[in-house]
C-alpha cells in the first residue's frame, strides 16, 4: 500500500528506456556487425533490456504501489508482496 521511495527511481528508468530505444549515440554510424547495421543490434538488445526491466518492475510490486494498490491485492500473484526486490534493486 505504501509507496516506497525507491519506486520513484522507476520514473527516470522508464524515461531512459523510452529515450534510448532510439540509438541516438550511433547517429550516422554505418558499421555492420554480424550481418546487420550495428544500430539495429542496439535496438534489439534495448528491447530485450526493456522486457527484463518491465518484468522486474512487475515482480517487485512497484506496479501496484505506483497506483496506490496493495501488491498482494491481486491474489493470483503469489510473488514477494513486500517489495523488497524493488528495494534491493536500486
Amino acid at each position: 500500500m505504501k509507496r516506497l521511495r525507491s519506486d520513484l527511481l522507476w520514473v527516470p528508468t522508464f524515461a531512459i528506456l523510452v529515450a534510448f530505444a532510439v540509438p541516438w549515440p550511433l547517429w550516422g554510424v554505418d558499421r555492420v556487425v554480424a550481418g546487420l547495421p550495428v544500430w539495429i543490434w542496439w535496438h534489439v538488445a534495448w528491447l530485450g533490456l526493456c522486457t527484463a526491466l518491465f518484468a522486474l518492475f512487475v515482480r517487485s510490486g512497484a506496479w501496484e504501489r505506483g497506483m496506490g494498490q496493495r501488491p498482494d491485492g491481486d491474489a493470483s500473484t503469489g510473488r514477494d508482496p513486500s517489495g523488497s526486490v524493488g528495494g534491493d534493486r536500486r
Binding site: W39, H43, W63, G66
Partner: peptide, 26 residues
C-alpha cells in the same frame, strides 16, 4: 531505410508499453 524498425519498435514496444501501465492499468 530500415530506421522504420527503430521508430516503430520505440513507439510500440517501449512507449506504448509504458502508456499501457500509465493509462491502461489505471
Amino acid at each position: 531505410g530500415p530506421e522504420w524498425l527503430v521508430v516503430m519498435g520505440t513507439l510500440d514496444g517501449v512507449l506504448f508499453a509504458v502508456l499501457w501501465y500509465v493509462i491502461g492499468y489505471k
